[in-house]
Simulated scan of single mutants.
Amino acid sequence: MADNKQSFQAGQTAGRAEEKSNVLMDKVKDAATSAGASAQTAGQKISETAGGAVNVVKEKTGINK
C-alpha cells in the first residue's frame, strides 16, 4: 500500500513541477516578445532620427534644391 501512495505522491509532484515549468515558460515567452517589440520600436526611432539628420544636412548644404 505504501508503494501505491508513494507512486501517487510522486505523480502529483511531477504534475506540479510540470505546471510550474509551463507557467515559467509562458512568462519567458511573454518577456521575449516584449523585448522584441521594444527593440523593433527602438530601431524605428533610430531610423527616423537618422533620416531626419540626413534631411537637415541636405538642407544646410543645399543638396535638397
Score class of each variant (00 low, 15 high):
36 G>I: 09
41 T>Y: 02
17 A>S: 15
41 T>P: 01
19 E>T: 01
44 Q>L: 04
27 K>Y: 03
24 L>A: 07
19 E>R: 06
36 G>V: 05
8 F>P: 04
25 M>W: 01
29 K>E: 13
30 D>T: 03
9 Q>G: 01
11 G>P: 13
31 A>Q: 12
25 M>E: 09
34 S>L: 09
30 D>N: 01
23 V>G: 03
33 T>D: 00
20 K>C: 04
17 A>F: 14
36 G>H: 08
42 A>P: 09
30 D>P: 00
43 G>I: 08
44 Q>P: 02
27 K>D: 10
26 D>V: 09
27 K>M: 08
29 K>Q: 11
39 A>W: 04
23 V>H: 11
32 A>F: 05
4 N>T: 11
28 V>C: 02
25 M>S: 05
40 Q>M: 11
30 D>H: 01
20 K>S: 07
30 D>G: 00
22 N>Q: 12
33 T>R: 00
37 A>T: 10
22 N>Y: 08
32 A>N: 03
41 T>I: 03
16 R>W: 15
15 G>C: 14
6 Q>C: 09
31 A>Y: 08
20 K>Q: 12
23 V>T: 11
43 G>S: 11
6 Q>Y: 06
38 S>C: 00
14 A>I: 09
13 T>L: 11
39 A>C: 03
17 A>G: 07
16 R>E: 15
33 T>K: 00
26 D>Y: 05
13 T>M: 11
12 Q>S: 09
30 D>I: 01
16 R>C: 06
8 F>N: 10
11 G>V: 13
21 S>G: 07
33 T>L: 00
35 A>F: 06
36 G>L: 08
43 G>A: 07
39 A>Y: 07
35 A>P: 02
9 Q>T: 12
20 K>A: 10
23 V>E: 15
19 E>N: 04
15 G>Y: 15
39 A>M: 06
36 G>E: 08
25 M>C: 01
26 D>S: 12
